[in-house]
Design a protein around this nucleic acid. Sequence first.
DNA 1: AGTCAACTATTGACCCGTCAATTGATTTAA
DNA 2: TTAAATCAATTGACGGGTCAATAGTTGACT
Lengths: 144, 144
Amino acid sequence: MSNRCSDEGKIIYQLNEIFKQMSPKFERCTGISQSRLDLLHKLFEVDETSQSALQKEVNIDSAAVTRHLKQLEGKGMVARRKNPNDNRFTFVSLTEEGRERIVSYRLEKEQFITKVLKDFSEEEQTSLSNMLTRIQKNVKDIQY
Amino acid sequence: MSNRCSDEGKIIYQLNEIFKQMSPKFERCTGISQSRLDLLHKLFEVDETSQSALQKEVNIDSAAVTRHLKQLEGKGMVARRKNPNDNRFTFVSLTEEGRERIVSYRLEKEQFITKVLKDFSEEEQTSLSNMLTRIQKNVKDIQY
DNA sequence: AGTCAACTATTGACCCGTCAATTGATTTAA
DNA sequence: TTAAATCAATTGACGGGTCAATAGTTGACT
């Protein structure tokens, strides 16, 4: 249950470090931030969604979603329009240009991922993934 | 080397999710952010250091370090003074109050960690840690 | 009808990180 | 000894996230 202090925080520490080191490299390699690519990915699969549905999928604050989508709209990658049947909702979809550009993003991302998982066998990957899933569950179970 | 798409991005995704979900809970449980606790930890071990040396250890930008330390100074947890032999450097140290309070922070942190690693055996923990180390190395090797 | 509650989206204030430019102190070299 | 280079720390501008408050729309209930 409890083990020696030197090791105790190490995994948490490593998780943070990996995140901090990986995020900026991801952005430089792919040319887009992970959050934005996530948004585009979801849109890629869905054709058109409400903003709130999108927000629930990517799991970032709706304020951030609004700002991202506005910028992506400014760059001509997504289109937004109000739901005519319910003006509270705004529908979001990829533009043609967005749809084209996301393909190259995906490519860059795949290359990035293979670099990150270099020398990991299939078994190791699934083993790692399973452990991460368990950690995720533990984190979720922490009340407060 | 390359495997099916559904699994490809999953680990990266999980790492991000864990980080995003864990950070705010950590802060609520312990009452302090991870970065700040890191800073205090280093100071706890070292008695007095220069700010730049501290910055190198915690691995966050020196601008952020300055701002953190100023706030911690405002709360009476750390003390700062210029190095009399070289006025470029500022020395940082824990105050008595800071030294007291960090003990409880450590306690909260330990409890948090055991929750995160619930149901993980020693072997699993070292196995996980080793894999994370390898990933960290892979990330570091990504040029650009 | 009219009011009230619920819901989406947006905005503002804030935290935390980065990079780039600046300030002040010291060292190096001419 | 003075000028240039270097270095630590700070500051400002910005990106991206959160929460809280607000605006606008819709639905339900009296």
